[in-house]
């Protein structure tokens, strides 16, 4: 076999080296990032941290309020965004006949998904905190996140609606069901996995969000009961916002790294769940 010229060999070697360097950088930053957070944070993750609230008198610096706030915001956001998002996807896939209208709506959805979270935070403050006078509150934060997560829910639902075979729809309609009955009993059940994937992705985004919540949900660290959570003027910070506060405003890095470990574990779980759901769809 005739071997290739020197120039081509050099090209081969350089390009291969560059690829391995790039992969090395990715792997190194991944391992370094995760390793460092675990190394710095794990010593500070304790039952005390998870089960108390910050109190000068008792000398505790727990993050229980932040955990609860994160949960409240996830639940409230999903309760509102799910019906709207799924309904929107159903309209786009089942009802809309005019292609132009579908294009416009899809363009709007894409625009929403490209807007940075700091702008959502600002607009959420203008609309929900001030205009609807909800005050800095968990519910104002949740409503802001509803707009933010709408594109995710619409996209994933729409994708799974597209995979429902048309013969299902035709069969149902031929048996005499109306359009809504057909959607409720045939289309939606077959696309449930896509909706679940959308929920998981949204939860991931909500858990990691900080800029949009800073001015809408506030920075309070008090425990709020589940009854009071949806009411106006009940401010509270989620885990991500609390991390920012402890690290940037107060310089308490130990707690910040403790929260970082918890966020990391949550991210890991959410990623795994999303993968599992995606696998189920492909089956």
């Amino acid at each position: 076999m005739k071997s290739i010229s020197f120039r081509r060999k050099l090209y081969e070697i350089i390009m291969k080296a560059l690829i391995y360097i790039a992969v090395g950088i990715i792997v190194l930053s991944f391992v370094g990032l995760i390793g460092y957070i675990l190394y710095r944070g794990i010593p500070f993750v304790s039952w005390d941290l998870l089960s108390t609230k910050p109190s000068l008198i008792r000398g505790t610096v727990g993050i229980l309020p932040n955990i609860l706030n994160t949960l409240y915001i996830i639940i409230m956001t999903l309760i509102i965004v799910l019906p709207i998002g799924v309904g929107s996807a159903i309209y786009l896939n089942e009802y809309a006949k005019n292609k132009r209208i579908v294009k416009i709506i899809e363009l709007a959805t894409e625009t929403l998904s490209g807007i940075p979270s700091i702008i959502y935070g600002l607009v959420g403050m203008l609309i929900f905190v001030q205009f609807f006078s909800l005050g800095t509150s968990l519910i104002a934060g949740s409503l802001t996140l509803v707009i933010m997560n709408l594109p995710t829910i619409i996209r994933t639902t729409q994708e799974s609606l597209k995979t429902v075979p048309n013969s299902y729809r035709e069969g149902s309609l031929a048996l005499g069901s109306g359009k809504w009955h057909m959607i409720r009993s045939v289309v939606l059940p077959s696309s449930i996995e896509g909706i679940v994937t959308g929920c998981i992705l949204s939860v991931g985004r909500i858990v990691g969000e900080s800029a949009a919540l800073l001015f809408t949900a506030g920075m309070a660290n008090e425990i709020i009961s589940i009854i009071h959570a949806p009411l106006a003027n009940n401010a509270g910070s989620t885990l991500s916002v609390a991390l920012y506060m402890y690290a940037k405003e107060r310089g308490e890095f130990d707690i910040a790294f403790g929260i970082a470990v918890i966020l990391l574990v949550l991210t890991f779980i959410i990623n795994f769940a999303a993968k599992l759901a995606a696998k189920k769809i492909n089956k």
Binding site: S29, I37, G208, L243, L263, L264
Partner: peptide, 12 residues
């Protein structure tokens, strides 16, 4: 996983 990590952690 890297894409899912919250931006505040990158900041920290």
């Amino acid at each position: 996983l890297l894409s899912g990590i919250p931006s505040v952690i990158y900041g920290l």
